[in-house]
């Protein structure tokens, strides 16, 4: 059933400062960045309890819509940068190929022109396509409130299904990716969905190996949150064979049956992705 919009309020702050001051009043405000999730809930009548208050961040684009490399060589993605901004950015194309790939397989171009990576993170869908790639690149998030800020690791941001460490008064202001350190042929991204375009993943994986003992592997759609399989990473870094790595991975992922796939299928696909990944990057 379609939502009766009159039941909801929506604030439209004109600047970052105004947005954070609104959040500091103790009201629970649900942020809207590109709207590509919230507007679907609205259409389905899932905006939540009558009286909920939303906050459109669109007018903060002047301050928060950017993709740039800072003087230390870190990539900074402003909270309002869209998938399109990211996938077409020269520095991203040069240094973070899995980010290009994952942004390109998120929705269709019309979605990529609107949706933001920060929104994808905040929304917390375990099927988010860009999040595994960001985790492999050791992304950090800058969280700001009216009086300060903190930086957290993306791999420690999620605390449970659609739950995270963000406080009511905070917003994600940017995503920070450390200097690139993986060779292009040591990076592997794979999304498995029903069809090439416009699909939500059944399993999504990003992995990389720097050849110096640092292996990163992150998985989506196989647990309540997107997660790094750290035990498997360590085993792979120590030279584990595919079978041993798979035995460990099974202790880290917990796929379920849902409308998009089954637990069995997801396990089978995860096992094959793991083997394929190891075949490509293992030395």
């Amino acid at each position: 059933m379609r939502t009766n919009l009159a039941d909801y309020e929506c604030l439209t702050p004109g600047s970052v400062r105004e947005a954070l001051e609104q959040r500091a009043t103790g009201r629970k405000l649900i942020p809207i960045a590109g709207g590509t999730d919230v507007m679907v809930w609205m259409n389905d009548g899932h905006l939540g309890k009558v009286g909920k208050v939303y906050q459109s961040l669109h007018a903060l684009a002047g301050e928060w819509r950017y993709v740039k490399t800072d003087t230390e060589g870190n990539l900074r993605i402003g909270a309002l940068a869209t998938y399109s901004d990211v996938r077409h950015h020269e520095d991203v194309k040069k240094n973070y190929p899995m980010l290009v790939h994952s942004a390109q397989v998120t929705g269709a171009i019309q979605i990529q022109n609107r949706g933001t990576l920060a929104g994808n993170i905040a929304n917390g869908s375990p099927a988010a396509d860009t999040v595994p790639a960001l985790m492999v690149y050791d992304a950090k998030l800058r969280l700001v409130n009216a009086s300060g800020e903190r930086v957290v690791e993306l791999s420690e941001f999620f605390t449970g299904y659609r739950a995270n460490v963000l406080k009511e008064e905070e917003l994600i202001s940017e995503i920070i990716l450390p200097k690139p350190r993986f060779a292009a042929d040591q990076q592997y991204y794979r999304k498995v969905g029903t069809r090439e375009a416009q699909a939500i993943s059944k399993v999504v994986f990003a992995g990389a190996n720097d050849g110096k003992g640092n292996v990163r592997m992150a998985w989506g759609s196989v647990a309540p949150i997107t997660l790094r399989s750290k035990k498997t990473e360590d085993a792979v870094a120590a030279g584990a064979a595919a079978d041993d790595a798979w035995a460990i991975l099974q202790t880290e992922i917990t796929p379920i049956d849902d409308i998009r796939s089954t637990r069995d299928y997801r396990l089978k696909v995860s096992q094959r992705i793991l083997a394929d990944f190891l075949g490509k990057v293992h030395q």
């Binding site: 709207g35 507007m39 459109s56 979605i111």
Partner: peptide
Amino acid sequence: GRAVMSCMVPVCQ
């Protein structure tokens, strides 16, 4: 200049 889905754009934006 960019193609978007108008069913997903809140008009305030």
